[in-house]
């Protein structure tokens, strides 16, 4: 405990120095093209490769191509919520204003990518498994994640005093993070209809490299795209808060004088 105040103070200084809203606008503007263009390039390459040039699977045939959209969407659904939880931590402990703005902007993007994951999963499950939906542990825990996103979106906008909304949403984001390991390990802990992960840290991927490459490219591309959209939206949100500040204080004072 004796060392922690300095640690907390130091990390706090770090965040305030490198992530204060003014600094973020400069950094974000410089970062944006480096996220946007590689994202477009890699996503188009990965998905084009997956759709037209990668081989059909020995048992699933061409339906396996849905994987190149579904798997990156699933990774980003979890990663986006992890981002939301980190923002929640920064908001609750360090009261970081940028973390709150970012949390507001991550929510809808993350919820949409989770919806995409569920929809493409359904579109894959119908021809392969023979059903649109089952209540197995993997599918259900991802559906829970989707509702957590929806709850976060609603909660962070629910209060007249935005600070209260930020606080409530940050708590929800942190509490909901419990769902992330459940999603990850659901296919190992319980029998599910959903197959286990093909790519693991411990073993060789049980996927042909001719399918792994397009998957890796589209996952990287979609990940960069997610980051690009979140950065762009957060930059816009910072500008909007600056616009509100300019509109409220100096103008009104100027008019009154």
């Amino acid at each position: 405990m004796s060392a922690s105040p300095t640690f907390v103070a130091r990390t706090g200084n770090f965040f305030h120095r490198y992530a204060n809203p003014g600094q973020f606008l400069k950094l974000g503007a410089r970062l944006q093209p480096w996220l946007t263009w590689p994202a477009i390039l890699l996503t188009l390459t990965g998905l084009g490769w997956g759709l037209f040039f990668s081989p059909a699977d020995w048992q699933q045939g061409d339906s396996v191509r849905i994987m190149y959209v579904h798997v990156p969407a699933a990774i980003l659904a979890s990663a986006g919520y992890a981002g939301l939880a980190i923002c929640g931590l920064l908001s609750l402990v360090w009261r970081h204003p940028l973390a709150d703005l970012a949390a507001v902007e991550i929510g809808p993007v993350g919820a949409s990518i989770t919806a995409l994951c569920l929809a493409t999963g359904s579109l894959w499950g119908k021809p392969m498994w023979g059903t649109w939906w089952v209540w197995d542990a993997r599918l259900t825990s991802v559906l829970v994640l989707f509702f957590l996103y929806l709850g976060h979106i609603a909660l962070i906008r629910a209060f007249d005093d935005p600070q209260r909304g930020y606080k409530a949403a940050a708590i929800l984001a942190l509490a909901g993070a419990v769902d992330l390991p459940i999603i990850k390990f659901s296919v190992q802990w319980w029998n599910t209809l959903h197959q286990p992960d093909s790519i693991t840290l411990t073993g060789a991927p049980t996927m042909s490299s001719s399918m792994l490459w397009p998957l890796a490219l589209s996952a990287l591309g979609m990940g960069l795209g997610f980051a690009a959209i979140v950065v762009a939206r957060t930059r816009a949100a910072v500008m909007e808060s600056r616009i509100r500040a300019l509109l409220s204080s100096p103008r009104r004072r100027g008019n009154a004088a």
Binding site: D62, V69, S112, I113, P127
Partner: peptide, 20 residues
Amino acid sequence: HLPYIAASYGLFAIMALVFS
């Protein structure tokens, strides 16, 4: 299964365009 594949990629394309 072409309709399922087309629908998946189509949904992604629409979403990516709307957000960007």
